[in-house]
């Protein structure tokens, strides 16, 4: 399957018309990948908007003192991107029911982050679709394995 929606940069400006069709959805199908490009300003904005004063997200010297390679991308920001990855795909009429993620490694500013996902189950009666998701750096380092549950419109 290859269409012009195979990748996107995740602005969240989703069109209802592009939402997946429950009737033709099956396990094994892949979601269009989403790419994010965090920089220092992105980390600053997220620290501010989430009221997070943790030094490892803005103080390089301190982050290295704690053993990180640089200031690091917030876990909850990557979590918010995971939810966006799913809601962008599922469309506005769908309902996100749950997500889980594991922090395996840290993303750094300047790295390209890639979100990919696969449908693992589809219940055509309830509309509930389960997904397995992963966030990697563009050179293939796994940052977050994740899962999501979403209910698509049944009508």
């Amino acid at each position: 399957m290859s269409t012009d929606t195979d990748t996107h940069t995740g602005t969240g400006k989703v069109a209802a018309a592009a939402a997946p069709d429950l009737a033709s959805l099956e396990a094994g199908q892949q979601l269009p990948t989403m790419h994010k490009f965090p920089d220092e300003a992105q980390l600053f904005l997220y620290s501010a908007a989430s009221h997070n004063p943790h030094r490892i997200h803005y103080d390089r010297e301190y982050a290295r003192f704690e053993g990180h390679d640089d200031i690091i991308v917030h876990g909850p920001l990557q979590g918010a991107w995971l939810t966006q990855f799913v809601t962008d795909w599922a469309g506005p009429a769908a309902r996100l029911l749950g997500v889980t993620w594991q922090n395996r490694a840290s993303g750094l500013p300047g790295e390209e982050l890639v979100f990919s996902g696969t449908v693992t189950s589809v219940d055509s009666e309830t509309g509930i679709v389960e997904l397995e998701i992963a966030e990697h750096t563009s050179d293939g380092r796994l940052l977050m394995p994740a899962t999501a549950r979403v209910r698509l419109p049944t009508a």
């Binding site: 602005t11 969240g12 989703v14 904005l45 908007a49 909850p76 991107w81 966006q84 506005p92 997500v99």
Partner: peptide, 30 residues
């Protein structure tokens, strides 16, 4: 939502939120 880079209309546009079945504007999930 802007800090995440998630400009889903259901967070910003009252009409879009209601068309999607919400009472009013919603907040991003987490």
């Amino acid at each position: 939502a802007y800090a995440v880079g998630d400009e889903n209309p259901i967070y910003f546009d009252e009409v879009a939120a209601q068309e999607a079945g919400y009472r009013t504007l919603v907040a991003p999930p987490t």
